[in-house]
Design a protein around this nucleic acid. Structure first.
Lengths: 173, 173
DNA sequence: CCGAAGTGTACAAATATTAGACAATCCGTC
DNA sequence: GACGGATTGTCTAATATTTGTACACTTCGG
């Protein structure tokens, strides 16, 4: 399941791109690469990408990683379920942690260990959330809302934007 | 908004519990504490807890943190939106990272800096996801499904468990 | 003890969903 | 380049859900 995946690698350093391709080719069905992060979103419209390996230090010289976090957010805004694995400089764990809090699936420090990288990508792909049936996820969302309202059905209904009776209906199922 | 919150602190060390209470009292509306993680879930049924500060090294002597991760998962299973901040031993960043990947909101290493702890809790509370209207979250879910099916409406409809026509209807809105 | 707020239930009207069908179109294969 | 299979966009009639409104009952704080 995870080995017929398409991986998109985004890094401004062509050497890294080549190394990644070398490491991942064979392990995954298709490896796409882009050198400029601006190319990521347009590419996602055209290609069926399953996971993105994203460098955190775009724009040579600017090493704050801010750029990388921005692109992470941009990707997640448009594709909330896309697993993104971060590529960070060695020892920049602090940045990686910020990335994880933003919702990245995992992170790998450069230089990486090939088999570890493959393993992490496979892992992230396996953890990729299933698309639930609409009614199941609706039920889950309703439970969350009621949870937050501490059982107050009227308030939960208002929050959810449905009538109280509908909430009762939906819960009966 | 974040300062009228109820915080639940779970740690088997009473000293930590006292220290946490001392640090958080005043900054948040109500501080609850439990010494045994088994008490967490039952307590959540009774009390309107907004955030959990969870120790990772329960069961004295067993310091793998496994226990903590297990309780994190248990909490998230029942309360997917509950922000959980992890309390880890200093330098056990590896464990904290695993926790973040599991969905923890943040982590704090012991011994902590009081103002940093307060800040992180406030931050996590502020990031707490709003409960969306049912139709909005349905729309978002539908977009995800179509995204995953790369635009194939028939497949997306099957995945979502609704008829193709319904999918068309819902998208028209 | 009152009133405000919430619950559980009911009804009829307005809407939405469903299965099934149709021609038109796209796409990979031969 | 023609073929067959899958997909699209649209329609219908039968079924189901949702909505507003209403009513009696409970809970809870002042």
């Amino acid at each position: 399941m995870t080995d017929n995946a398409t991986i998109l690698v985004a890094d401004d350093n062509p050497t890294i791109l080549t190394a990644a391709r070398y490491c991942l080719e064979g392990a995954f069905a298709r490896i796409l690469t882009v050198q400029r992060p601006e190319e990521i979103l347009p590419l996602l419209q055209q290609e069926a990408v399953d996971l993105i390996l994203l460098d955190m230090n775009f724009s040579l010289g600017v090493n704050t990683g801010r750029e990388g976090l921005m692109w992470l957010q941009a990707i997640q805004k448009r594709h909330p379920d896309m697993p993104v694995v971060l590529l960070t400089a060695y020892a920049d764990v602090e940045l990686a942690v910020r990335g994880l809090k933003e919702g990245a699936a995992d992170f790998v420090t450069k230089p990486w260990d090939n088999s570890e990288l493959r393993h992490k990508l496979r892992d992230a792909l396996a953890r990729k959330a299933e698309v639930e049936r609409l009614d199941e996820m609706e039920a889950a969302h309703i439970r969350r809302a009621i949870d937050r309202c501490h059982g107050n059905m009227s308030e939960a209904a208002k929050l959810l934007g449905v009538s109280r009776q509908t909430l009762y209906n939906k819960m009966r199922r």
